Simulated assay, not measured.
Amino acid sequence: MGRTIREALQWASSFLEKEGREANAANWMLRELLGLSSFSELILREQDVLTEGQNTTFTEWVHRHANGEPIQHLYGYEWFYGRKFTVNSHVLIPRPETEELVVAVLEETSGKRDVTVVDVGVGSGAIAVTLQVERPEWQVFATDLSSEALQVARVNAQSLEAGCRFFEGDLLTPLVDAGQQVDVIVSNPPYIAHREAPDLSDTVRDYEPHLALFAEEDGLEAYRRIIKQSPAVLRRHGILAFEIGYTQAEAVSHLILRTYPEATVTVKQDINGKDRIVVARI
């Protein structure tokens, strides 16, 4: 006789807690494994017996997560803006805060149909693909230095029927080389200083790509380089929109104003009340 759902959850929750992980992760993993649409459905079926295969997979997932592997890597996706995005070790796992960057871009371009956007450092494609699906009439470009990340982004664009155009290269360089101009530059670049690595959760530090996490100059290097390249790409009256580390608002705003002294710069806070988005109208 195999374990019931209730017994499996009791074991997993206790084990994860002892390993210093969130006990509630067990609920997420088992719900995804069984293809259930809600936690209440999991509870209603708590006396169901897991098959041998389900029990083996669940046990493996629990141990892998206890060792630090993100649960999104176990089942291969994360939800973003109400849509399912494939993720793996080559891309950042999309965060709720980044949804607010998408909202900011949509708000700043409200009512405009003929808009060209570039997402710099596209990763999983969460920003670019979401903007393209939300605004099918727009032209959305995306760049990334990582060919592996671009493969993931293309998978997500295809599965969500988004007609983004992807370019492999460093920041805005592919668009500069192509002579392509845009109305909006949006980016969630690497912004964590290398010295902050020990403070990160091991699920982030050890399993997500350092290329997308860390930057030189106390985390400001990518902003400086994007802003420096932007005059060759950004049209007059264009928009710069960045996700930032919560202590970086003043520094990023200063970098923008140094290149665009007449810009109107706005700092927006995230759902936790922390500075998270910088938007500049050039």
Rank of each mutant, 00 (worst) to 15 (best):
E7L: 11
E7G: 11
A8L: 02
A12M: 04
G20N: 04
N27C: 11
L36C: 12
S38G: 12
S38W: 13
L44F: 14
T59H: 08
E60S: 15
E60T: 14
H65D: 11
A66C: 08
N67K: 15
G68A: 10
G76D: 09
G76V: 08
F80I: 02
G82S: 03
K84F: 00
F85K: 00
N88K: 02
H90L: 05
V91L: 03
I93C: 05
P94I: 00
P96F: 09
T98I: 01
V102L: 06
V105M: 13
D119E: 05
V120P: 10
V120N: 09
V122A: 14
V129S: 01
V133L: 09
V133H: 08
R135N: 14
Q139N: 08
A142D: 03
A153G: 04
R154I: 00
N156C: 04
Q158V: 06
S159R: 14
E161C: 02
E161N: 03
A162V: 03
C164I: 00
E168W: 01
D170Y: 06
L171R: 00
L171A: 02
P174C: 05
D177G: 00
D177H: 08
G179M: 07
V184P: 12
Y191A: 04
E196S: 11
P198K: 05
S201K: 15
Y207F: 15
E208Y: 04
P209N: 07
H210C: 08
L213C: 13
F214C: 02
E216V: 07
D218F: 07
D218I: 01
G219R: 00
I226G: 11
S230E: 07
P231I: 01
L234I: 09
R236N: 11
I239E: 09
L240R: 10
L240S: 12
A241Q: 04
Y246Q: 15
A249T: 10
V252K: 02
L257I: 10
N272R: 12
D275Q: 13
D275K: 09
V279M: 10
I282P: 07
